[in-house]
């Protein structure tokens, strides 16, 4: 397998399995399965970690409070007065992206294919191949998230300004601006998703290349930078930009 083939194979999103429902054959991609894993972990954590809260925080409660406080303060600093309506959405996106972008840290966990080769157990042969790769490496996922964020921006503008106010914001300061303002609603999700996709895919490819070139210590350092630092940074940028757009839409 040459390098180009290896990389394009690594980039590709694969259909893991499909099932039949509502009269359609519905495919499930590996990025969706990884998403399910992340969402499952987040839901379990959010339900178990928020039990038995005490006035004086300790242990796990501290971590939960720091996370929520961070999300609240990001939202507060960019949106201001109406932050309560948006903090849960931004928090959801932030937590999901942080986990999604950094999940290749857990790439050490062998795929079922490797487990089958390693152990020879029949059991693993029947499990579809799932490699733990960041779902945000899949452009489709990013585009969907960016479109959802823009829908939130639009919805926020309509809700807090009313239809008239929102239409007014399109002609502000001059009616000449209308085409650009409308273009904004297409450019913003494109830039949001392309930025995230490019960063995560680039980091993923660089780390893959490093594993091919120098499989020992060197990729670990790259992993820490690209997967942890860049992953968290990109998650923050995505949420921050979305919050800026929302703030602009409702002010």
């Amino acid at each position: 397998m040459d390098l180009g083939e290896y990389l394009s194979n690594a980039m590709e999103t694969r259909e893991v399995f499909s099932f039949y429902a509502f009269g359609y054959q519905i495919p499930v991609y590996d990025s969706i399965v990884v998403m399910w894993i992340i969402i499952g972990v987040l839901i379990v954590l959010s339900v178990t970690l928020t039990r038995n809260f005490k006035t004086v925080p300790s242990g796990k409660q501290n971590i939960v409070e720091i996370v929520v406080e961070l999300v609240n303060s990001i939202t507060k600093s960019s949106i201001g007065h109406h932050w309560r309506h948006f903090a849960p959405y931004f928090g959801t996106i932030l937590l999901f992206l942080v986990f999604a972008n950094t999940i290749s840290i857990f790439g050490i966990i062998p795929s079922s294919e490797e487990l089958y080769k390693l152990t020879g157990l029949e059991f693993f042969e029947h499990i579809p191949v799932i490699e733990i790769k960041p779902p945000t490496k899949d452009f489709g996922v990013n585009v969907t998230m960016a479109v959802m964020s823009i829908i939130v921006v639009l919805g926020a503008g309509l809700r807090f300004k009313g239809l008239k106010g929102w239409l007014g914001s399109l002609v502000d300061p001059l009616p000449v601006m209308i085409p650009f303002k409308i273009l904004d609603y297409f450019i913003r999700p494109l830039s949001l998703s392309a930025r995230l996709f490019g960063n995560i895919l680039g980091a993923f490819l660089i780390v893959e290349l490093a594993y091919i070139a120098l499989p020992a210590v060197f990729p670990a350092a790259l992993n820490i930078y690209f997967d942890l630092f860049d992953g968290i940074l990109q998650a923050y940028i995505f949420v921050f930009l979305t919050s800026i757009y929302v703030a602009e839409a409702i002010e």
């Binding site: 999103t13 990025s31 998403m35 987040l42 959010s46 959801t92 999901f96 969907t144």
Partner: peptide
């Protein structure tokens, strides 16, 4: 895929 992602994120949103 978009429907999957949107559905997943909405579930995550409401749960969180």
């Amino acid at each position: 895929k978009s429907i999957w992602v949107a559905l997943n994120l909405l579930i995550l949103y409401f749960t969180l």
